[in-house]
């Protein structure tokens, strides 16, 4: 039996072996020329090439575009205008009142995105934490519930948007329930408040499984002995949570915060499918603004879109650095 398995294994890996053998002379030559240290560069090269082509070059191009003006998409046909696009975006009478800004839609999107991030990330962390705490308990059907909460993560954001649009539309499932309960139907997605709340709720539902998983892993890494020591110390459950669970979950929480924050700022697909940015501009988020200005509007302005995306990128970098700093501090706090 073992011999049979060995043969099957050999046949299955034959293509890989042949490819490896084909590369062998090249690798030998490279190693002879560069030494063992050069091999590190050789193996990193494919990944770095992909990173360069799909991240670094577009990033540089994006920055170059942000220094140009006009509606032409080809860089050669565009005129260099320096930091004019940034000036246009940042020109504002009162940043808290988008209508006083030259690019009022940009500032509306900034305001909407900021509010979205504030509420969605808070909600996401709370809901994920509560779910992780429940799933960490020895409840019946724990495996089933873990799958249920993780399942939406596997769905495409567009599918998520479509499902919830169907649920929340005028003749959707939600209104069926509402009317059966004896209330008047609500036009959920045409109401500024409900549409914004729906965008928050839907994106939380779609992604919370992932964050729950990170927190669950953190909870399971906390030694059981510590809880038993706390039990011997007559620690009330709330104090166990605040003084033991939460501090020890610090590094995982920081990861969740960073990721949720980045995803929150980048919110686009499910919200776009769900509300299309409406009603009015009540759910217009930054990424949608960039997409519409750069590609979808009649008078497209790739330079302005590029400048907006650079500004958004800078905000993301700053947020990430802050969160990473907090995460390292939390980690040091736990291990020192």
């Amino acid at each position: 039996m073992a011999r049979f398995g060995e043969t099957v294994g050999r046949v299955a890996t034959l293509p890989l072996v042949l490819i490896a053998r084909a590369f062998d002379p090249v690798l030998r030559l490279w190693q002879r020329g560069t030494g063992t240290g050069g091999m590190v560069a050789f193996f990193l090269l494919p990944n770095m090439a992909i990173f360069g082509v799909f991240v670094i070059i577009p990033l540089v191009l994006n920055f170059v575009y942000s220094l140009t003006g006009g509606t032409n998409i080809l860089l050669g046909d565009r005129s260099f205008i320096g930091f004019g696009q940034y000036g246009r975006l940042l020109e504002c009478g009162n940043y808290l009142q988008p209508l006083t800004c030259r690019e009022d839609q940009f500032w509306t999107a900034v305001r909407n995105t900021s509010l979205f991030v504030l509420f969605q990330v808070s909600l996401m962390v709370c809901v994920s934490m509560i779910t992780a705490l429940i799933l960490n308990r020895n409840i019946a059907g724990r495996g089933f519930f873990r799958a249920v909460f993780f399942f939406p993560v596997l769905l495409s954001p567009v599918v998520v948007g479509l499902i919830w649009r169907w649920i929340l539309q005028r003749q959707g499932l939600m209104n069926l329930i509402v009317t059966n309960l004896g209330f008047d139907p609500v036009v959920w997605l045409n109401d500024r408040f409900f549409a914004f709340a729906a965008a928050i709720g839907v994106s939380t539902w779609a992604h919370m499984g992932f964050y729950t998983l990170i927190l669950l892993a953190g909870l399971q890494a906390i030694p059981k002995d510590l809880y038993e020591a706390a039990e011997m110390d007559a620690t009330p459950p709330a104090r166990v949570f605040w003084r033991i669970t939460l501090p020890l979950l610090g590094p995982n929480l920081a990861v969740v915060l960073v990721l949720a924050l980045i995803r929150g700022v980048q919110i686009f697909d499910e919200a776009y499918v769900l509300t299309g940015g409406g009603p009015g501009t009540s759910t217009l988020f930054l990424t949608q603004y960039i997409y519409e200005v750069g590609f979808a509007s009649f008078l497209r302005n790739p330079g302005l879109a590029a400048a907006a995306s650079i500004l958004m990128g800078l905000v993301l970098v700053v947020l990430t650095l802050i969160q990473l700093g907090l995460s390292r501090r939390a980690e040091r706090g736990n291990t020192r």
């Binding site: 030694p223 510590l226 038993e228 706390a230 011997m232 110390d233 007559a234 620690t235 501090p247």
Partner: peptide, 29 residues
């Protein structure tokens, strides 16, 4: 429950709270 028996336990793994100082560990209970 364990809390109501008036006993104290020393664990094999020590079970010290890693994020607290020695003083905080001692005074927690």
């Amino acid at each position: 429950g364990a809390a109501d028996r008036g006993l104290a336990m020393v664990f094999q793994s020590y079970a010290l709270y890693p994020h607290m100082t020695v003083r905080q560990n001692l005074s927690f209970g």
